[in-house]
């Protein structure tokens, strides 16, 4: 009995000592180094407008519905791209709700981008991402939206294509992962083109 009591006391002390080091000192040290070396990233990679308002984060997708903007993927985060409620649909492959949503998205995508009724639609354009905040769309998806955006904005196809290329994040180090077009960066760049 005495040993149990002593071990319990030891467990309490160990919990407290480890909590101070692992949950107090360690995260604060990481905070300090992060703020010193990578302040932009550590604070959320925020993008500010010319008048210093925060307009978004490089990493968090936003909803764009107007025809003059490139459109992101469908999102299940809150009411769509709600960055305080990240989530996927979690619908399984035989879910009626999933199939209905994709069907509607395919029809809308074809109409918006003036595609023939039997055109294949890129998978990422009509499916929801895992986080609901996917900042990227596939290059193929972006290419199919170029004509619409350039027409609405009165920009040349080449100018829009150049903006798409500039907003494309390649695979990391050329090897890891997939290329993707950052929709928010692309759309903000197009807005800046227009104001110039």
């Amino acid at each position: 009995m005495k040993t149990i009591f002593k071990e319990t006391l030891r467990a309490v002390m160990a919990t407290l000592v480890l909590a101070v080091i692992l949950c107090g000192i360690y995260p604060v040290v990481i905070y300090g180094i992060g703020q010193l070396l990578f302040p932009h990233q550590a604070n959320g990679s925020l993008i500010e407008s010319n008048d210093r308002r925060i307009v978004g984060s490089e990493w968090l997708g936003q909803n764009f519905t107007s025809a003059k903007y490139f459109h992101p993927r469908p999102s299940a985060a809150g009411s769509g791209y709600d960055a305080s409620n990240s989530s996927g649909t979690n619908l399984g492959p035989t879910s009626q709700k999933l199939i209905d949503a994709v069907k509607a998205a395919v029809a809308q995508y074809r109409t918006e981008n003036n595609l023939p009724a039997d055109a294949l639609v890129p998978a990422d354009a009509v499916t929801s991402s895992a986080s609901g905040l996917d900042p990227h769309i596939s290059v193929q998806n972006a290419q199919l939206q170029v004509a619409r955006v350039s027409k609405v904005r009165g920009l040349s196809i080449d100018a829009v294509k150049a903006a798409v290329d500039k907003a494309t994040d390649g695979p990391s180090l050329g090897i890891f992962g997939e290329a993707g077009v950052n929709v928010l960066k692309l759309n903000l760049a197009l807005d800046n083109l227009a104001t110039k």
Partner: peptide, 19 residues
């Protein structure tokens, strides 16, 4: 999904991130 016009080359992208 392929039946409804989704390009099968993309694979099953529901619940996956582009990157």
């Amino acid at each position: 999904l392929t039946q409804f016009g989704v390009d099968p080359a993309g694979g099953n992208m529901e619940g996956k991130e582009v990157r």
